[in-house]
């Protein structure tokens, strides 16, 4: 009956969704330049995966590097900036109501890709942190390591 109506409805829905996406910003894009800066060490490691086309032989995706962090930044903020600068693929899932960020994938290695118990975990100064990466604030000279586990952390020493 009303053929153009369907077309316009579809286009309208598409536009609304795209606009919604562009406004769905989370409040992490503030400028940190005025804050005090310090260095932390960041590394990303997936050596638990034996052979994977996206992982180099030594398993290191991002070699331990001293990077700049700003006061009040979370572990996630540092990871996000450095991955963006290095051009490494990073996928996160945000839950704004809890101000929470969950790391789904680094370098196209997604959680659950290597079995039902696999995913990304992080430790600071050798200690696994059991709260979300967006809630843990970095301190000067922290050593942040992101590790891929195949077995809920048992293979990377979570319960030792």
């Amino acid at each position: 009956m009303k053929k153009p109506a369907i077309l316009w409805t579809t286009i309208a829905i598409a536009v609304v969704i795209i606009v919604a996406f562009f406004f769905a910003r989370s409040g992490t894009q503030e400028t940190y330049e005025l804050r005090e800066s310090f260095t932390v060490t960041l590394s990303v490691n997936a050596n638990t995966i034996p052979h994977h086309e996206l992982v180099p032989e030594d398993g290191v995706i991002f070699h331990a590097t001293e990077v700049t962090a700003y006061e009040g930044e979370s572990v996630f903020d540092v990871l996000n900036r450095e991955m963006r600068n290095a051009g490494i693929h990073l996928v996160v899932r945000r839950t704004p109501i809890f101000d929470s960020v969950y790391i789904e994938a680094i370098n196209n290695i997604f959680e659950f890709d290597e079995g039902p118990l696999s995913g990304w975990k992080y430790r600071v100064n050798g200690e696994f942190i059991s709260i979300g990466a967006s809630l843990y604030l970095v301190q000067p000279d922290d050593v942040i390591e992101w590790l891929y586990t195949l077995d809920l952390g048992r293979d990377i020493g979570l319960y030792e």
Binding site: I6, L7, T10, I11, I13, A14, I17, I18, F21, F22, F23, A24, R25, S26, T28, L54, N80, R84, G87, H89, L90, V91, V92, R94, E104, A105, N108, F110
Partner: peptide
């Protein structure tokens, strides 16, 4: 054609797999 466009546009908004990063979406995902 609208169905084709809708599917082609919606998939990259929710699926971020793939090694060729063209741009970043406003929510931070590639």
């Amino acid at each position: 054609i609208p169905l084709l466009l809708l599917t082609a546009i919606l998939n990259p908004l929710f699926n971020h797999r793939g090694v060729t990063i063209l741009a970043y979406l406003p929510n931070g995902n590639p």
